[in-house]
Design a binder for these strands. Sequence first.
DNA 1: TACTATAGTGTTATAAATACACTAAGCAAT
DNA 2: ATTGCTTAGTGTATTTATAACACTATAGTA
Lengths: 216, 216
Amino acid sequence: MAAIATDVVMFTVHNQQLKVLLIEMKKKPFVGYWATPGGMVNPEESVDASAQRHLSNKAGIKDIYLEQLYTFGDVDRDPFGRVVSVAYFSLIPDADKFQIKTTHDYADISWHNVDHLPKMAYDHRHIIKMALDRLRAKLEYTNVVYSLLPTDFTLAEMQQVYEVILGKNLDKRNFRKKILSLNMVEKTGKKTEGTAHRPADLYKFTKKSPQIVQIL
Amino acid sequence: MAAIATDVVMFTVHNQQLKVLLIEMKKKPFVGYWATPGGMVNPEESVDASAQRHLSNKAGIKDIYLEQLYTFGDVDRDPFGRVVSVAYFSLIPDADKFQIKTTHDYADISWHNVDHLPKMAYDHRHIIKMALDRLRAKLEYTNVVYSLLPTDFTLAEMQQVYEVILGKNLDKRNFRKKILSLNMVEKTGKKTEGTAHRPADLYKFTKKSPQIVQIL
DNA sequence: TACTATAGTGTTATAAATACACTAAGCAAT
DNA sequence: ATTGCTTAGTGTATTTATAACACTATAGTA
């Protein structure tokens, strides 16, 4: 019968760019091709747990936003045999904060700008496209952005995350007005330090759990 | 390894009630329990095709709105063994128009009011709950309602579908204004006949394919 | 012809989204 | 200490969307 795998599309925003975590494959016919981290579901673990495990093993990342994206079940999507893959998407605050482990199973693991993906294995280009669509949609009606920001952040940083992902500029005053009216965030009382200009107020999220809130 | 199944949550609106199609099970430990129609994925068919096939076999229904809902992958969800189920949800115009076949595999197959579900097998109560949430959400920002209405329909009928599913009354004038402004529908030129009161204009959908349109 | 039932239609009020430009604060250079 | 530079922070007016609300029209039936 068909095997079940999980794949995780992990995004972060770094250097004003939306990045996705990819691994470079070693085995034929995908030598030099890249794929999202993932792997088989063990018989004694849930599908969700499998996604968490692969994420943890490949990138040392735990306890982050992980959401089921879609299940890819075409017959020919994997040349090694019948594999149905449950894809997840995932967000982390910043690329540098996590240890990305390279294992001997893969040639390389690194972050890639979503606009310039390398040669992709399987149907993973398609999976990333779907994840990106979902991310953009969720950004507009939920508070998922909390998963992309550090504990303390400025509203300018938050706005930049929105702008990078949505690919358009937002009005500063309207953005702040909206975010503040939603009570998503509150001031920490602290300010940024060491900038060669006026320091900014630091904010934190009032709730670090998924919420439905119409944002944009 | 784990087996892969599909389940289909099929909705219709009938007699001003939102109904879901269920089958009554024969095999232990679920004798007398009900489940959504579904079954195993064959090795040589895609997961999507499996959902279509089971839907066709169990209810004689083809070429209708079918959308992947969620994949349920908990270890203990099926007492017969490890089964990961890809759930779909589905909408059809009206209960009477389709032949619901009862096969010897099941004790019964019938429509149930979503507010009064019988004893449910597996995690199917949960699956239906998710499908219902999704349906309500999609009703508000897409044109999925076309799948629940016959070719020609009145705006009053359409409004009733919205009211039944959302569980609230809508203002007639605002509803019509909104629907007409979206150009979702157009007059057929025909009118209802045989009613003991003023006949209503019959409309049809301009596009019978999924569209994103902010409705409510 | 009048009674009944559903169809069909506009306006006003309220709320939300959008467009838009200046002052404030800190650091660095002189 | 003054000036220049850079980013932070703020309010109002306009436009658009949503929400509330009641009467006339038309066919069938009695």
